[in-house]
Design a protein around this nucleic acid. Structure first.
Lengths: 231, 231
DNA sequence: ACTTTTACTTGATTTATATCAAGAATACAA
DNA sequence: TTGTATTCTTGATATAAATCAAGTAAAAGT
């Protein structure tokens, strides 16, 4: 029996964005000519599901969520710290709209690259195309992990996952500012706000975490990981 | 307010596999030289999560499921009729194992292509690479739709989805042989076998479907679609 | 400072759905 | 054919988690 994979619902990859590393100076200039940088405030929409996909986006700074919306329901596919790329799934032929929305959790800087320029690079540079493939493939593995987590784990495990993800992948420290609201956390763990509160309180009572004013500290990551793994 | 997208949890795309269309005869020969065709019986495993990804697979005939496994839990990501490609996510750099398992629902024919040969094609032919990107991108859109369905819809909607998917995408007719067991259906809709039975009975009582001996007929697809949409 | 809104917490209730249990139907084997 | 094992069905019960409700705390606006 193989060691079980740990599906952590984290939806943040460990590999840095790398598809621009192998471009020539000429190609880099071409990218620059066809891109702009934009500042977004907290809560602003970077791209809107269903709108025309005119560009590929690169998160340079900040934090965002990528989500599907349908009526009043929203499903977060991924949280996106810098540096990461947004919009690759809109590259598929016959599709010219964004398959998801993206919104910032805090003030963020985003680079917008003309999609036609991006496509031109893919067509002319097979190594670049290979890296785009690599990113798409990794992305699907990450999202599938989150898929597993949200469908198979129950609330405690899902929230433990979210906390560990913030600590390990986003802020990369045990003690971090809680810039996300309970509502944000609830949405990330796909549960109600009330349940989120209750579980956080329980974690606090059991000494797994400490919550100071707008700051959260992971006291017992091992136990949280255990909760996440059990489900 | 834009028209709501219909997330149907179907996880079968509408576009045929097309990445081999633009290859030269020489390239096609190269693919042939580096591939074999294998027959699988119903229930056999085509690829196993975690094992070394030595090849890309093409379903030539039959039907299979692609799923994540973790302990006793399994999550079906996708059902795969012919002609479709399996294993693209194992293309990402630094990963040499299959990120999921695949198992046949019926006797199937699969073509196995050496992954090194496949990668060589990507590196040497940017158009081919572009089509692989397109397939990966489409795939992620499909799986995200299923993700939404399984996390946001409740049992009736999910099962309605599965039935419509079988009818519309797999068998392409209103009346089709029920080769899947209740257990298979339950797994597809991510619910218990008992609930599956109950809901099927309800659909039958309400005249939405008819079940003859090992054959199922969709009598009221519109109503089923409504159930699927409401959730 | 006070008011209004928004965010958070806690408890009671409801609901969807899994699980448990046991019987019926079907398939399979001797 | 009869016995055995699956698969399917149906009912009763348990449970996780949402919803409802009402209050407190914090933030924002006047």
């Amino acid at each position: 029996m193989p060691k079980s994979v740990v599906y952590n619902g984290c939806s943040v990859g460990e590999n840095p964005l790398c598809c621009f590393d192998d471009l020539t100076q000429e190609e880099l200039d071409f990218v620059e000519e066809n891109s702009v940088e934009v500042e977004y405030k907290r809560g602003e929409t970077i791209c809107k599901q269903g709108s025309f996909a005119s560009h590929i986006m690169v998160m340079k700074e900040g934090l965002a969520k990528i989500y599907l919306e349908n009526g009043n329901d929203a499903l977060i596919l991924k949280i996106l710290p810098a540096v990461n790329i947004i919009g690759l799934p809109s590259l598929f032929e016959g599709n010219n709209t964004f398959p998801y929305s993206a919104q910032t959790y805090m003030d963020s800087t985003v680079k917008l690259i003309e999609i036609s320029a991006f496509k031109k690079l893919i067509e002319s540079n097979a190594r670049f195309a290979g890296q785009v493939i690599s990113m798409l493939a990794e992305n699907s593995v990450i999202i599938n992990g989150r898929f597993f987590c949200l469908t198979k784990k129950q609330t405690y495990g899902r929230l433990a996952d979210v906390l560990l993800c913030l600590s390990n992948r986003i802020y990369k420290t045990d003690k971090f500012p809680l810039q996300l609201t309970r509502k944000d956390l609830a949405e990330l763990a796909s549960m109600s706000v009330e349940s989120t509160t209750r579980i956080l309180t329980k974690f606090k009572d059991e000494g797994l975490i400490a919550v100071h004013c707008n700051e959260i500290e992971i006291l017992n990551p091992d136990k949280l990981l255990e909760i996440s793994t059990i489900g």
